[in-house]
Write a protein that binds this DNA or RNA. Structure first.
Lengths: 238, 238
DNA sequence: AGCTACTATACAACTAGACATATCATACAG
DNA sequence: CTGTATGATATGTCTAGTTGTATAGTAGCT
């Protein structure tokens, strides 16, 4: 009946508390014995949970000393100028991005409407995985107008992120014109990439970015592992 | 002629021995292997018998640990002066309380509102498990204003219950000012502590207690194993 | 043939305890 | 003040025992 192992539910509890900021960065967790008592299990079961969190890069254990929190809860500011690398560096985290695939294909009606193209125009579809301190935090799917921005597919494949790729082909600046926010449940594939449980809650942002001339350059969907990230919104006066 | 299955006769034997007081409340039964040898059957046949007794609510099994005898349902009076030890002694049951953890942390907005504190004031978070005759019946999570009641965390850690800890630091009396009642499903961790099935129904009381001067001293949530306890309410005239 | 009760075996998940080893704080001698 | 010894405490490792689950097989009945 209990199809989720105990150690996993304990790991989830602790991961949640860390994400909620119950423990500062660098803080020591309660001892394995204390956690075992709190959760009402054997020390070894707690160790199993801790081991998985250590494997995720959230914790670090030192024999004789204790188990320590490596990462702090990540606040990811949403503004009209969202830059993954800069955001994470500003938060004191080590950003990384892994390109999963770059495809060229003819765009659908929806794509055409969003990117102001004609149906059938070629677009580049970009899939990538974003990391903070080695832990996956977001899954990205972006569409770019390849016909208007030739060479982008190659630039994207080289890695280094979207901003750098756009720079390479002459788009020096771009801003978000709209962002939609919803919550979804992780599909098996997403869960695998983001290292969360299947069905875990994800934050989905759908955004359209335009260059300085107002031409759409990117329609992107990003799934954030909500247990590891909090999207923040600064309500500035216009 | 309908022959009674072996497992049923084994279940009957064990049920009789439990009823005869052969095993203490909360005591551990012999292992499945030992019972299988005693009755001269395969371990799975014993398991079938045990499963039926577990289904009846007489026993509870814990992987890696053993199979335990549970005590019978209990009536628990809810009033403006709820004292666990006294309530259980009055019901002729042996009360016990196990402190799971005591943590100090900064309070959230909700905590501040309930305890009339400022956001960020320090509170003591107390987790404990209540037993009746060796059977867990309730899981307690209470928050206390540590700033207003210094030393409470230490007093709580010594065990002996909330009432005694509050006495120790000078709060001689306190009463409930409000109680909210809802039903929830047991999370994996809660199920472990209370020795019920994951997803089993729990009674959740959320209560605020104040001292004689009307200052909040405790905001507590208590999850009762509803299969073992009935909350009773006496409507007295004021 | 299909159903039921039971047996047999193997492995996974969790508990229990003992012991090894690293770290830290403290006390004490030089 | 320094260095060392010691004890308490923390994580790391190992062995063994218990319940949970899955698969397969056997005997007896309808």
């Amino acid at each position: 009946m209990t199809k989720t192992p105990i150690w996993r539910s304990i790991a989830d509890s602790l991961r949640g508390e860390i994400a909620d900021g119950h423990y500062e960065k660098g803080a020591r967790l309660p001892t394995e014995m204390a956690l075992a008592e709190r959760f009402g299990v054997n020390r070894h079961t707690v160790r199993h949970a801790l081991a998985s969190l250590i494997d995720e890069g959230l914790l670090h254990a030192r024999r004789g000393s204790g188990t320590f929190v490596l990462s702090k809860p990540l606040d990811y500011p949403l503004s009209d100028r969202v830059r993954f690398h800069q955001n994470l560096l500003a938060a004191g985290r080590m950003p990384d991005k892994k390109v999963l695939s770059v495809e060229l294909r003819a765009c659908s009606d929806d794509d055409a409407r969003r990117l102001k193209l004609k149906t059938g125009d070629q677009i580049a579809v970009y899939h990538a995985l974003s990391f903070a301190d080695g832990t996956p935090v977001a899954l990205v799917e972006s569409r770019f107008p390849e016909t208007r921005l030739p060479g982008l597919a190659c630039a994207l494949e080289e890695g280094g992120g979207v901003t750098k790729a756009l720079e390479k082909i002459g788009v020096s600046d771009y801003v978000r014109s709209s962002t939609r926010l919803t919550a979804t449940k992780a599909t098996p594939t997403q869960a695998l990439h983001l290292r969360v449980q299947e069905g875990a809650p994800l934050l989905l942002t759908q955004s359209l970015s335009k260059d300085t001339d107002g031409r759409p350059v990117e329609y992107g969907q990003t799934w954030f592992a909500s247990e590891r990230i909090t999207l923040t919104l600064d309500h500035v006066s216009h």
